[in-house]
């Protein structure tokens, strides 16, 4: 196997993608969690929204390209655009 020089490879970026319900879409999970909090002694917590978080390593030439790739795959597969929004962010260089 011929090793590919490091200079020709993209860098692996650690990317976190958050998938959350769009504003205006009812969130029964978030509402249930919020209602449970006072019973546990946590007061003053509101607007709880439940969602999903995905972590992945993305090979790309730079951060922008890594984020673009992660956002694209998140919109295609990880989320349903009818009811969810996605936000991708760089967590660190993997």
């Amino acid at each position: 196997m011929v090793a590919v020089p490091t200079s020709l490879r993209g860098v692996n970026y650690s990317v976190t993608v958050d998938v959350t319900l769009r504003a205006g879409i009812a969130d029964p999970e978030g509402a249930t969690i919020e209602r449970a909090l006072p019973a546990l002694g946590f007061s003053g917590v509101s607007a709880v929204r439940a969602g999903k978080s995905f972590r992945m390593n993305v090979e790309a030439d730079n951060e922008e390209a890594a984020l673009a790739k992660a956002t694209s795959l998140a919109q295609r597969l990880l989320s349903n655009p009818v009811m969810e929004d996605v936000v991708a962010r760089i967590t660190s260089e993997a």
Partner: peptide, 17 residues
């Protein structure tokens, strides 16, 4: 069918969970 875009809208978790 909704995920595939063959039908409009989406199905989410039941109101009462």
């Amino acid at each position: 069918l909704t995920e595939a875009g063959l039908l409009p809208g989406a199905l989410q978790k039941n109101r009462g969970l």
